[in-house]
């Protein structure tokens, strides 16, 4: 019986692989952007899963345990804070990629990445 951490880590790693596969093989820019968001979701899941400790509760102090024994009762809050940051930045980069893709389509009338050969060597 795999525990929660194993499942979450496997899911995250698979999402990263799927995302990289899409980004490397798909020709359509929009699909590449979706693939990137998949990969970054996978990274977020992996980071959160690493902070999970078995049998502990969310990192919020409340009445169910005394504040003094918090260190023995809560999971690691640091990965969650990191991922919170990463999600927001991920949204910013996705919006940026979409804006660039829009402008590329407006200028070249195509989203096929093989047609953009300006920087090819």
């Amino acid at each position: 019986m795999p525990d929660l951490t194993q499942i979450a880590l496997t899911t995250g790693f698979l999402l990263i692989l799927i995302g990289f596969y899409g980004a490397l093989t798909k020709p359509n820019l929009l699909r590449i952007i979706v693939a990137f968001t998949l990969a970054s979701t996978g990274v977020n899941i992996v980071i959160v899963a690493v902070g999970y400790l078995r049998g502990r509760t969310a990192p919020i102090l409340d009445a169910t345990f005394a504040a003094g024994e918090a260190a023995a009762r809560v999971i690691d809050p640091l990965p969650q804070a990191l991922v919170l940051t990463a999600i927001v930045i991920g949204l910013g980069t996705t919006a940026l990629m979409l804006a660039y893709a829009y402008q590329l389509y407006a200028k070249r009338r195509t989203l096929d990445i093989a047609k953009f050969t300006d920087l090819k060597w």
């Binding site: 102090l61 809050p77 969650q80």
Partner: peptide, 24 residues
């Protein structure tokens, strides 16, 4: 098996130092 030192610091010092219930 237990929190690493950084996380332990946050878990122990947040309530007395900052008074916030949500560690994140």
């Amino acid at each position: 098996p237990a929190l690493n030192p950084t996380a332990r610091y946050y878990a122990e010092r947040t309530a007395p130092d900052l008074g916030a219930a949500n560690l994140v």
